[in-house]
Design a protein around this nucleic acid. Structure first.
Length: 410
DNA sequence: TCTGGGGTCCTAGGACCC
DNA sequence: TCTGGGGTCCTAGGACCC
């Protein structure tokens, strides 16, 4: 019988912000931006949650519910730093660790009784170690499956530990709302409610075949989940097994919708550079590029194309993204969001003919130099030529890395 | 309410091949 | 003139998670 821990940091973003500004402690705090900005709540303190504020809620709505809340911008670097500290502490505790997101992790604790004692004792030791090394609180769920461990860490919050003793899974799950099952969101919940299914116990009573007929493959997985079983997808991989990224993307929502072609293409250039940089960090080449385009009415299209040769070069990514944009933009229609998405990764640089080789090599060296400059002076220090037009003009330098190629017109 | 940004996984239709 | 079946790849969209 395996033993899994699911560890989830309590109000992670808010708690990290409190470490940098202790005056925020115990106050209603909303992380995500100013109340009059376009955007949603990334995280809300427990005091803010009392007013009905929760993550993913528009900032304007949060302000209406809780005008006295302190609104702060998010600091992704800080969260990454503290996520790293959490990971270090976990690794010092057990080698079989996997971060499932920036603020949660699974541990395979099977067979550690001799080292740490029974599960509850191990969990308290771990809880102490996390607090000591990060100054942050967490909650821990313990179970014989990762799924049940995750659900129980949610119920243990805040700052608690909950162990579902093997054999008691069904009794634990039965009274919970179906929404508590990871993977059941708004839509599935509504579909289940329409069938009179509200609790996990209602789900577990149904025949597998009924769910499979109704919801296909997803229905089958759901039947298993309602019984507390790990099955399918990520659950089939061992904890700690390293699977690299499958896609890399960046997107931007404009503070005001725009139809200004210079601003739109400058944004595409910047997004392409950000994607290219991440590709090079991971030593990956993208075999496919996708453009995302959202209009004022929130209608969204994606347009993708496979590349004849995989690439990690900003210029090639930008060329493809711009081509997709020019072909698919309803000319003149104001745009709310643009995104550039890379996938179909290959690790090794693909073969090229000799003539292309020299040009390609020069670009690679140039971009490596640009990446080093960005490391020293920040993301906006270096930019593609097209990025110099439009809104980013003031933030870029004239060709600081000696970029090869033509200068932009105008 | 007026809706971010970064991901993963699944479905479904059409192209294409044998 | 009307007519296969299966497999795989590509593309678009959507549900969901943090």
């Amino acid at each position: 019988m395996p033993t899994y821990f699911h560890l989830d940091m309590d109000a992670f973003f808010v708690s990290v912000e409190e470490l940098f500004d202790p005056a925020l402690k115990r106050k209603p705090v909303v992380v995500g931006g100013r109340p009059n900005e376009r955007g949603v709540v990334s995280a809300a303190s427990y005091a803010a949650r009392q007013f009905g504020v929760h993550s993913a809620m528009p900032l304007r709505t949060a302000y209406k519910l809780c005008p006295q809340a302190i609104f702060v911008d998010g600091h992704p670097e800080r969260y990454r730093e503290y996520s790293g500290k959490v990971y270090q502490a976990l690794q010092s505790f057990s080698p079989l660790v996997e971060m499932a997101s920036i603020d949660e992790a699974y541990l395979d604790m099977t067979g550690t009784e001799r080292l740490y004692g029974p599960p509850l004792r191990a969990a308290y030791l771990l809880h102490e170690r996390i607090l000591r090394s990060t100054q942050l609180n967490c909650s821990i769920g313990i179970a014989a499956s990762r799924l049940v461990a995750k659900i129980s860490s949610d119920l243990a919050k805040p700052n608690g530990v909950l162990w579902v003793i093997p054999g008691h899974e069904a009794a634990f799950l039965a009274p919970l709302d179906v929404r508590k099952v990871p993977g059941v969101g708004k839509v599935t919940e509504k579909n289940l409610h329409a069938l009179g299914i509200r609790k996990v116990g209602d789900l577990a009573k149904l025949e597998e075949s009924f769910l499979a007929e109704r919801f296909g493959k997803w229905g089958l997985a759901l039947a298993g989940k309602s019984r507390g079983l790990d099955a399918g997808g990520w659950f089939d991989t061992a904890i700690g097994e390293d699977t690299g990224p499958k896609s890399i993307s960046h997107e931007h929502t404009f503070s005001e919708d725009t139809a200004d072609i210079a601003q739109l293409e400058a944004t595409l250039a910047r997004l392409s550079e950000m994607v290219g940089r991440r590709l090079r960090e991971h030593r990956l080449h993208a075999g496919a590029i996708q453009l995302k385009l959202r209009y004022s009415d929130f209608s969204t299209i994606t347009r993708a194309r496979s590349l004849s040769r995989a690439t990690q070069l900003d210029t090639e990514l930008f060329q493809q993204a711009r081509e997709l944009f020019r072909r698919n933009w309803r000319t003149g229609a104001p745009v709310r969001l643009l995104g550039v998405h890379a996938s179909g990764f290959e690790e090794e640089a693909p073969q090229m003919d000799l003539i292309g080789e020299e040009h390609h090599e020069r670009w690679k060296q140039t971009l490596a130099a640009a990446d080093r400059l960005r490391e020293r002076f920040g993301e906006s220090a270096v930019s593609l030529a097209a990025g110099m037009r439009g809104q980013f003009r003031e933030r870029t330098h004239e060709n600081p890395a000696g970029l090869p190629g033509k200068k932009p017109k105008g």
